[in-house]
Amino acid sequence: MTVLGISRGHATPAAAEHWVYDLVSPAGRGGVVACTHLVRAPHPHVAVSIEGLAGAPAEAGDPALAEAAELAAAAHTARTGGRAVLYPGVELLVGTLTVADLLAASAIERVTVIGGPPAAPDSPVRTRDFVRPQWMDGRLTLVTTPVAGGGIAPFEVPNPTPCCADHA
């Protein structure tokens, strides 16, 4: 399936993610996999790739960032890079569910653990209602870590500490 690359020069994954959510209406999300990509050139920013979109996107990318958009599309196509913000089943990944249920309910193909032993099928995943798997080695992979209270949670937290809290 064709993967569309678009870059509008978003500064952060969160900003790019909001733009994707606006671009792809809830009714049009069936089968869509949309990812954010960290791109270094021509300046560091976040590009987007979308697979499975019905019709042309309502908004175009920045022509000056066409190369970044191509890189994003290529990484997504090759399943080597891209952080998925829309993917089949994402809306079901809320609260706590087991690894087996998470794999069954969504397009995520693999769960890995940093800082702890490998996850078992019945390991509880505390989703924090924020699950952003990545294309790694051909598979949509959720990287997790052990967390307080037992079980695992996605490595990426929904509200990381800002560079300087209360920066004036």
């Binding site: 500064a11 952060t12 994954p13 960290l38 791109v39 270094r40 560091p44 940093i114 937290v157 500490t161």
Partner: peptide, 17 residues
Amino acid sequence: AYDNSPSAASFPGYPLE
């Protein structure tokens, strides 16, 4: 207060660890 994930400004080679 180490709880971040890579950003566009991050050195791409650093692992999540």
